[in-house]
Amino acid sequence: MKIIVAIKQVPERDARIRIDAEGTWIDLQDVEFTLNESDAYALEEALQLKEEHGGEVVVLSAGPERVGKTIREALAKGADRAIHVESDDLAAYDALGVARLLAAAVKDEQADLILTGLQSDDLGLGQTGVILAELLGLPHASLILKIEAAEGGVKVLRELEDGWFQHVELPTPAVLTIQSGNSKLRYATLMGIKKAKTKEVRRVTPLELAAEPEASVVVLERVLLPNKQRTTQILGGSPAEAAAALVEKLRFEVRAL
């Protein structure tokens, strides 16, 4: 089974949020980056499928040079090679534009499956995988927890709302977007880290992909810190003082104790 895993490098969860000078994104100075959480699960599913059925796992990522570090980490965990769509200017593309780049980068790979996380922890659009399927003319299923090989394709477990699930069968090649949480994520071994250094990373630019640049239809104009929806009373003092103050509130104002 040949599996492509599209991954994204995103700011660490506890990164300090300061708005940049243009007011259109956060100031990335001093920000640490990491692999997007649901993409980490997509990678894990791909590696498990390879262990079970053999084949190849190819990591695909778009972004500036720093993304190379996240790609190496994926290779260290066991992916076989990688494609890095190198661009310092991804913010100029909307979700369709990014998906067009990814589609152009993998269209000749003849993969059986393309996996990606269901949404990114930074922009959270939750669309790249589904758009990619449409651009490549492939069937897809989203919010997938489990993948099994089946006659002519795969059988997947899909999460629905409110604790419901369903199985979906679909023919391969197909695109699946992976929900977090089904498997335990592996760590890279020392041997894996060593091997990753020699694995192939093919770097391509948007220009080389000749993915026709089209004007974005959706533009992120500015970002701002959210307004509070409720007035929060912050209870200060030592932990014991704050706890006592909260109990007072819960007893006499909320009347819940």
Binding site: K228, Q229, R230, T232, L235, S238, P239, A242, L246
Partner: peptide, 24 residues
């Protein structure tokens, strides 16, 4: 979470939660 909270305690939960249990 503080944007929707009515009451907030900014602190280490490992200190605050036991103190709150004791206070309750």
């Amino acid at each position: 979470i503080f944007e929707v909270a009515d009451y907030g305690i900014v602190g280490d939960l490992f200190d605050v939660v036991p103190a709150l249990t004791a206070a309750v």
